Simulated assay, not measured.
Amino acid sequence: MKEIEKMQAGLEYCYDDEDISMMKLHAIENANIFNSLPEDDLDKQHEVLCEILGSVGEKVWIAKRFCFDNGKNIHIGNNFTGNFNLTILDINKVCIGDNVMIGPNTTITAVGHPLSPKGRRKHLAQGGEVRIGNDVWLGANVTVLPGVTIGNNVVVGAGAVVTKDIPDNSLAVGVPARVVKKIENDI
C-alpha cells in the first residue's frame, strides 16, 4: 500500500513521502492563490474556494491567511465565517456545518503524530476525522485535535484546546476544553 493510500484510509503513514509532499505543495499553491485575491471580491473568493475545497456552501467568508494541507478534505456548510489566520490541517475529513463562526488564529487539525520518539523519527502521522456541527462558535485561538466531534449549538471559549467530543448545546472552555454549562437552543 502506498503512503498516500494509507493516509486516505486513516492508517499510520509517512508524512514526508513524495506523493504526500506534492499534495501539500499543491495545497500551499492553492492557499496562496486564495490569499492573494482582493478582499472585496467575494464572488471570486467563493469561486476559488469551490475549486480548491471539497465542498462549500453559500455565504462563506474566510479572512486572510487561510492555510490547509490538502483542501479537498474540507467541507463547509452555509453561512460560515472563518476569521484571520485560520489553519485547517485536513489530512483527513474536516466537516463543518451551517452557521459556524471561527475566531482568529484557530487551528483545526485532523492529523497527529506518535507519542514514541521512534515513530516521530520515522516521520509517521495518522489522521482522524473532525466534525463540527451547526450553529457553532469557536472563539479566538482555539485548537481542535484529530478525531473530535463538536455537536450543534456549541460555543468553545477563546484559547481552548478541544481534545475530546463536545455534546450539543454546550459551552466548553479551558485546556483541555471541558463543558462548563449547557446553553439554550433558541431556534
Rank of each mutant, 00 (worst) to 15 (best):
Ile108Ser: 06
Ala27Gly: 07
Met7Asn: 01
Asn32Arg: 09
Leu37Thr: 15
Glu39Cys: 05
Val60Ala: 07
Gly157Phe: 07
Tyr15Arg: 02
Val155Thr: 07
Ser170Ile: 15
Ser36Cys: 10
Gly133His: 07
Val142Asp: 01
Val179Pro: 03
Phe80Ser: 08
Met7Gln: 01
Val111Arg: 03
Lys164Pro: 01
Arg120Phe: 04
Leu89Thr: 01
Ile96His: 06
Asp90Asn: 10
Trp61Pro: 00
Gln45Pro: 00
Glu3Met: 09
Cys95Asp: 01
Ile91Met: 03
Thr106Val: 13
Val155Met: 02
Val161Thr: 08
Ile88Asn: 01
Asn141Arg: 13
Phe68Val: 07
Gly133Pro: 03
Asp17Ala: 08
Gly133Ser: 07
Asn85Glu: 10
Pro104Glu: 09
Thr143Gly: 02
Asn85Pro: 06
Lys44Ala: 12
Val94Ala: 01
Asp168Ile: 15
Ser55Arg: 11
Thr143Phe: 03
Val48Gly: 04
Val111Gly: 04
Thr87Tyr: 12
Ile74Thr: 06
Ile52Cys: 04
Ile132Leu: 07
Gly139Arg: 06
Arg120Met: 04
Gly54Phe: 01
Pro176Asp: 05
Met7Tyr: 00
Ala63His: 12
Gly133Phe: 08
Ile183Val: 10
Ile52Gln: 03
Gly112Leu: 13
Tyr15Ile: 11
Phe84Thr: 05
Asp186Tyr: 09
Ile96Ala: 09
Asp16Glu: 05
Met1Cys: 00
Asp40Phe: 14
Arg131Pro: 00
Glu18Cys: 05
Gly159Arg: 15
Gly57Gln: 07
Val173Asn: 02
Ala110Gly: 12
Leu115Asp: 04
Val142Phe: 00
Gly103Trp: 10
Phe66His: 14
Arg121Ile: 13
Leu37Glu: 13
Ser21Phe: 03
Arg120Thr: 03
Asp16Met: 10
Leu37Cys: 14
Pro117Ser: 04
Leu124Met: 08
Asn32Glu: 09
Val148Ile: 06
Leu171Trp: 09
Asn99Cys: 09
Gly57Phe: 08
Ala63Lys: 13
Ile20Asn: 02
Ala31Thr: 11
Arg121Val: 15
Lys181Ser: 12
Pro176Gln: 06
Leu86Ser: 06
Thr143Lys: 05
Val94Tyr: 02
